[in-house]
Amino acid sequence: MERFHRPVRMPIEAFDVFEGAPDPAAVKRVAHDTAHALLNRVHESEDPEVVERTVRYANHNGLDDLVQLWAPAAAQSLPGSLWRLYLVHAAVTQDAANASYLYRRGAEVDVSINHVVAGAVEPTGPAELQSLIETILRGAFTGDFADALDRAAAFCAVMSQGAAAVAESDEHTNPSRASAALRRGARYLDFARDLATSAKLWRVGALD
């Protein structure tokens, strides 16, 4: 029998309204130190259970600890990047059906290679999208970190386009849903830009 665990308490709406906060030097240092320690520990470990616990941390423990620790960090930093990876993972996990719909809408209108870089299996249903986002998060700890950030950035870019498409479709028939989609699309676009920049910084050893 599985042990009872706390659910992810941060609601999905947190993705839409997430804001970083000014971080005092001490809080900043703790955030950066813990991010580096976690990434190094998992990369150096030969125990697959360590990777599994790390990837599923938010599912079992909630995002509360991570939001306190990493959310205030600068967007283009290691803790800021890890926070965004976990938050996007949680957003998909909590509402895979809607997320997969947004992704498909985005892939339909994407004229770039973002949907290719993200690497979702087509047709992209809820299970396929959950598998994709977990692969991306797992890759951050087991593979090339910059590649994982690039895939996450591409994923967010496609989701942004999907949300924009939904907003356009609902503009006259469902204004409130259109407004929510616009906010979510803007958030995904911000994340896409931040993660792509962080990937570039990591490759030159400048992502602290």
Rank of each mutant, 00 (worst) to 15 (best):
L87I: 06
R105L: 14
D47T: 03
L195M: 04
A153P: 08
M159A: 06
P123D: 10
F141V: 14
R203N: 15
R151D: 12
E171T: 11
Y103K: 05
S176I: 08
A25Y: 01
A127S: 00
E46K: 02
V51C: 02
S112A: 09
Y57W: 06
A118F: 06
L137V: 09
L149P: 14
A153K: 10
I136W: 06
R193D: 03
C156V: 01
A25V: 04
R3P: 01
L69H: 08
A165I: 03
Q76S: 01
V111S: 05
D110K: 15
V50W: 06
L149I: 10
L207V: 05
R104A: 06
N114R: 15
A90E: 15
A71V: 02
S176H: 00
I113C: 11
A96Q: 12
V50Y: 08
A37C: 01
L38D: 10
L149R: 09
P48V: 07
L38G: 00
R104S: 14
G119S: 08
A157K: 06
A127K: 09
A91N: 04
Y101Q: 01
A97D: 15
R187Y: 02
A146V: 07
A73S: 11
T34S: 11
H60A: 00
K28H: 12
A192T: 08
D64A: 00
D147S: 08
T93M: 04
L182N: 00
N114P: 00
T142Q: 04
L207I: 05
R84E: 09
R84H: 13
L63K: 07
L132C: 13
Q68N: 15
A180G: 07
I113T: 10
V166S: 05
Y188R: 04
M1C: 10
T142D: 07
V116R: 13
L195R: 00
L201H: 07
A186D: 12
G119F: 10
G185I: 14
T135Y: 12
E52R: 15
R203I: 02
D194S: 04
R6I: 04
V55R: 01
D208L: 00
N174H: 11
D150K: 13
V111E: 03
F15A: 14
A74P: 08
S176G: 01
T93R: 06
G20I: 01
R183M: 08
D47C: 08
A120P: 11
V109Q: 10
A178V: 10
D208N: 03
R3C: 05
N61V: 00
S131M: 14
A75T: 05
V8K: 02
R203W: 03
E108P: 06
A153W: 12
A148H: 06
V55I: 11
A35V: 13
G20W: 02
V204R: 15
G143A: 15
A35W: 03
A140M: 03
Q161E: 13
A58V: 13
G119T: 13
R187E: 02
D170E: 13
E44C: 06
Q94I: 04
A146F: 07
A96C: 04
G80H: 03
W70I: 04
R203E: 14
R41Y: 10
D16A: 12
Q130C: 07
A167N: 03
A206N: 12
T142E: 11
R41V: 09
A21P: 11
D95F: 02
A196Q: 07
V88K: 04
E13M: 03
R84N: 13
V88Q: 09
D33C: 04
A163C: 05
T124W: 07
A90K: 07
W83D: 14
A74C: 01
